[in-house]
Amino acid sequence: MNNTPLIIFDWDGTLMDSEGEILTCMRAAIDDLRLEPRSDDELKNIIGLGLQEALRTLYPQGSSADLLQLTARYRYHFLESPRQPSELFAGARAMVEELHEAGHFLAVATGKGRNGLNKVLQQTGLDEYFHITRCADECHSKPHPQMLHEIMDHLGVEADSALMIGDTEYDLQMASNAGVKSLAVTYGVHEKQRLLDCQPLDCLDSIEQLHSWLKEKVNLAA
């Protein structure tokens, strides 16, 4: 097996400041179908889950047909409707570039669908830096460990050489379920105590703190 450190990032709320865009698209999809509105807290809570799991959480009594329609409308608004795209958090690009330059394996494990992730990877130009990515429409949704298992198997990396970084308890629970260490960031959607309850290695409040932590603990200069 390969001993090269593997750093796995969540995308939304960890590398990209996309909370507002996700909420806007979800509200628009809900309005399209004239469903009962959901609060900002309810919508924020499902960020990180796969789309099907997120919609079932929002509308547990909804029919399969309703959920399929809602899925289609959300994807339309995210992929096709004109609006200002989300931006990476300040410092995220430099951090990813430095990790890549240092020779670490880099991956993404996200609740996004494949088309959505490909869109933002191309928009940001970060697609060249990740060795592998996994999405919720090609694996089980977080917190199931399938995404991490497939990433590690593809790269030939054992769990003790991997680190999962995310802003939701779903990310941290997925890591625990896969036997992988985790690192939490608080600038995304879940509050700090909710993250601490998952017992990550550390809980960091900014990209700058995350970058510094990785420099010190993962030894970027090696």
Rank of each mutant, 00 (worst) to 15 (best):
G62K: 07
H140E: 13
G62D: 08
L6A: 11
A28N: 12
L35K: 14
F105K: 13
D41W: 00
I151G: 08
S86V: 04
M174Q: 08
K44Y: 02
K217S: 10
L43D: 13
H149E: 15
L196H: 09
Q61R: 10
L106W: 09
T168M: 02
D167R: 10
T4E: 10
D160I: 04
G179Y: 12
K217L: 05
N2Q: 14
R134I: 03
Q199P: 03
D41E: 13
L79P: 07
S18I: 02
K181G: 06
K217E: 13
H104R: 11
E53F: 01
A162K: 09
S39F: 09
D167V: 06
H149D: 15
C203A: 13
D197P: 03
D197L: 08
P60N: 01
L201D: 06
T24H: 14
K192P: 05
L49Q: 03
I7P: 04
I165S: 09
D197T: 08
V96F: 06
T186V: 10
L70P: 01
Q209C: 10
R34Q: 13
Q61F: 06
L163S: 12
L210K: 05
M16A: 15
A94E: 15
P5S: 09
C198R: 15
S63D: 07
G91C: 03
K215Q: 11
R114S: 11
L148G: 10
E80W: 00
P60D: 02
L99V: 10
S161P: 00
L214T: 05
G91H: 04
P60Y: 07
I7A: 14
M1A: 14
L58Y: 06
Y187H: 08
S63C: 08
S63Y: 08
H154Q: 13
G48P: 05
G91E: 00
P37M: 11
Y129R: 04
C198W: 05
D205P: 10
M1T: 14
L148S: 07
L210F: 04
C198E: 15
D167G: 03
V96S: 03
D10H: 01
R75K: 14
D12M: 07
Y129I: 05
I22K: 07
K215S: 12
L58C: 04
Q146W: 00
R56S: 02
A92K: 01
G166P: 01
L43E: 08
L204V: 11
T186E: 12
S39I: 06
M152F: 06
A222Q: 14
A159F: 00
D12L: 02
T14H: 10
L204A: 09
P145T: 03
A184R: 02
L214G: 07
L70T: 01
E158Q: 14
I46Q: 00
A221Q: 14
A136E: 00
C139N: 14
D202W: 01
